[in-house]
Design a protein around this nucleic acid. Structure first.
Lengths: 110, 110
DNA sequence: TATTAAGATTACTTTTCGTAACTAATGTAT
DNA sequence: ATACATTAGTTACGAAAAGTAATCTTAATA
């Protein structure tokens, strides 16, 4: 039925998961705490939690616990995660060149 | 609230739309008819139709009608669509390097 | 014991999916 | 002329997933 390379298909499905791209973009800037990401991204805590768990399971994100007061938990990209940088950079370049201001303005219409 | 570049966010949301990546991958190989894509991709006609309309609206895909018997309709990438090639190529490279065979085998588990 | 941060859980609403049946346009066979 | 193929979708609708906000949990202070 379908002629796709299973690795590619798996990667595509993973990267197409809603908000995963934006989370990767956040983490490419450096280690982030849960609440920082929650503030920066347009998603709720429940979803952020789900996605971080998914990315951790996939070996893309690492969760580091620092036993301070109060406890600090930081999320960082693994090597596998950092290797996605070119994808994100390409998307940024494409967006700069091809997404027009009008398109963004007309978000709420239709 | 959020600190993201709106162009980037828009691009990310668009490219994160389920199946959009796989459709782009199909079309990077050249012009495709509706039924060919339906056969190659693991999605239903309804969704394929939805996504093609979305991509046409976004100026990424072009729809060409040939009045033969029976009518032939081909989908191709616009310049804006072709400009996404690096993104897809990067994802392919990443998948080759980082998606292991075991991960694919264990699709149905958990 | 009251507070604070991280994040999990719950209860509930809204969107999106997927299947299968249906429509439209056009050419062919009878 | 009428009935049937073929391609390319569209519609309807129940099922599944995604979304939100508010409420718990845990652990270490002050």
């Amino acid at each position: 039925m379908n002629q796709l390379c299973p690795r590619f298909e798996k990667a595509m499905v993973l990267l197409s998961t809603r908000w995963v791209g934006l989370i990767l973009f956040e983490l490419l800037k450096g280690a982030k705490r849960f609440s920082e990401m929650e503030a920066d991204l347009p998603i709720s805590g429940r979803l952020l939690s789900d996605r971080l768990k998914l990315l951790e399971k996939e070996g893309i994100v690492e969760r580091n616990i620092y036993s301070e007061f109060p406890v600090r938990i930081e999320y960082t990209l693994s090597e596998k995660g950092k290797a996605l940088e070119p994808v994100i950079k390409d998307i940024q370049r494409w967006a700069e060149e091809y997404i027009s201001a009008e398109e963004i303005a007309s978000k709420e219409e239709e």
